[in-house]
Amino acid sequence: MWKIIKTRFQQGYRTSAYPDGPSALPERFRGRPVVSSQPCAQGCSACADSCPTQAIAFAEDRRVRLDLGKCIFCTECITACPEGAISYSTDHRMAARSREDLILSGEEARLAHALDEKTRKLFGRSLKLREVCAGSCNGCEAELTALNNVVFDLSRFGIQFVASPRHADALVVTGPVTDHMRGALRAAYDAMPTPKLVIAVGACAVSGGPFAGSPQAHDGADSTVPVDLYIPGCPPHPLTILDGILRLLGRLEGGRERV
């Protein structure tokens, strides 16, 4: 027992100050991409051609449109672009309420806004999550598990993962929704008491990710359940997930936020 006490003093208090303190992410962290608002040269589609998930398209005015929901945060487009029109910031904030809000095109990003007042009052101080893996490679699961550790400490916000869908308020879905998991996912959603939410975590759950178009998967959680919050990433950093959920609950800044 003395050893445990001694080790406790050595290990110390580790919960990060975020969101009241800085996020302390390293230089090479691939956070939200920054897309140039200048039109690109006619005939050049190097970025779109190199993107593994076809997340990049061009608007009529030749401005780049990057779909964050399909983005798997690799570096292909950065390397391919001769003009440096796309680059990564270390900003971890990316979650959005709708698929359209995930499309970056040089304007400011539209981050997730909070739920309506009634739901915010209900879940503001106590939100229970039920996780369903529907074909995820396990990367997103690992980051969700990390949210429970002493550094990110999800429980300090009154948010916890629970064992049964009946105890849960929000369904956290990962994976592109494989054929075999479709029924189970729907059953879990139906087993939850109302009011309920659905959070899609990771590129696969948002759009299918690297498995988009595979005949054994259904290109994301949208195919099976109505989604309230999309958190892009491959896998999303725990702070990205935390930021998204706190924004949804209105515990960061209220209302629509533009950054």
């Binding site: 208090y13 429980s155 300090r156 009154g158």
Partner: peptide, 8 residues
């Protein structure tokens, strides 16, 4: 004991 901020 765990060194975390913990549940309110």
């Amino acid at each position: 004991w765990a060194g975390r901020k913990g549940v309110p």
